[in-house]
Design a protein around this nucleic acid. Structure first.
Lengths: 219, 219
DNA sequence: AAATTTTGTTAGTCTTATCTAACTTTTTAA
DNA sequence: TTAAAAAGTTAGATAAGACTAACAAAATTT
């Protein structure tokens, strides 16, 4: 059974893998905000437990078991977010940090009951898929708004980041899941985009913001 | 801010204080299931943090601050039990262990929202008082069934232990909070009691069981 | 009051998770 | 293709939370 710290390393590895296939000790250290020797040590321990595969100077890999563990932590995180939002009435901008704590609770019953109460949801409040009790889930292949061309129409389906700060920004701009946007212009200099949606015309979104929005392309 | 381990020591001290005013290093060690040197060390650390007062070979004391911290942990525990039982539909025999984990969550918002959803309850599913947001609560002075005399009539108001095992025993005997019982007989040899309640006549309860039941005396 | 038992303390060790400083390997760029 | 930069490793330390073995102090019993 992974410790809480182990769980955080597993989750970090999982997220890094989503973007990048070759994860370095340094990458993981940055994600976890710890020094390289700390990661080095931890990786050895986690390899001994069978969760990661590592050879000196080579990229890190999650084993099948490690992936399984990571998936269950993510299940617990996303179910918690969903429960906090749907049952306890918290806003989508508030749930991430609380779920970050709750994901380490060990009681399976607790999460299974949440799942049941929520009617076995497949998406969390930020649009991310929730693995089921067996660890299965479908990863829809949305694209980043930042990668969409000018003139296209898209629907916001998920966020790649769920920090309170980021979501407060979206709330201010009245952007939510399901919002349909048309890309009017892309500034070559800073890659910022001018978009239109609902009653808003010509809203400028920075590249950083566009990089956090996962969309489904309509046209 | 106390660590999770600190919180458990504080809670243990709090519970020991309820029965016994003079708590020894040994007592705390037994409650926490750790060795005496471990307690000794920990007590020094917790004294440095201002939660306990201790002089060599003298009894342990919770400081005002320590008592405050303990009260908030108990608030979190009991609110969790209430939420698990009232909102999530768990049985009173299932909630203790889950609440034992949940009580260490740091988010105040989470517990305050629970409190609100539950309508600011003052008792948990086992009849124990729930401290409010300021740490205040009334400790009703029930007496132990084991201390009641023969012939008296009592109502079960709270449990002094909330383990699944103990409550499963009560469930089997169809004893719940609010059950009115009459004490028919007390066996001098082993202090077991013969009681009558609802449709049950002449049920024998061991001293151990009677010691776990907090009752209000009617006659 | 002395002997015994219980209680508490000291000293030294372990594990987990972290650090810095210094060194080595690999990669990249001149 | 070698020099510089980046990445990774080793060694030694620290803090929290635990242990055992051995000793000291206090309380209890005879």
């Amino acid at each position: 059974m992974p410790t809480q710290t182990n769980e955080n390393y597993l989750k970090a590895l999982y997220y890094l893998h989503q973007k990048n296939s070759a994860i370095s000790i340094t990458d993981l250290g940055k994600e976890m905000e710890v020094s390289k020797p700390t990661v080095n040590d931890m990786v050895k321990k986690m390899q001994a437990k069978g969760w990661v595969k590592y050879e000196k100077y080579k990229p890190l890999q999650l084993t099948k078991q490690g992936l399984r563990e990571a998936t269950f932590i993510i299940r617990k995180h996303r179910l918690s977010e969903m429960f906090l939002s749907q049952v306890m009435g918290f806003g989508w901008e508030e749930v991430h940090d609380m779920a970050e704590e709750m994901e380490h609770l060990k009681s399976e019953m607790f999460f299974d009951r949440m799942d049941e109460i929520l009617g076995f949801p497949t998406k969390d409040p930020h649009g991310s898929p929730i693995p089921d009790k067996n660890g299965n889930f479908v990863k829809p292949d949305y694209r980043l708004l930042s990668q969409v061309e000018i003139g296209k129409k898209v629907v916001l389906r998920a966020l790649r980041e769920s920090s309170t700060e980021f979501i407060n920004f979206l709330n201010n701009k009245e952007i939510k899941l399901g919002t349909t946007m048309t890309i009017k212009q892309i500034e070559p200099f800073d890659k910022s985009m001018t978009v239109c949606y609902t009653t808003h015309t010509d809203v400028i979104l920075s590249h950083t913001v566009c990089n956090g929005l996962l969309v489904e392309q309509l046209t």
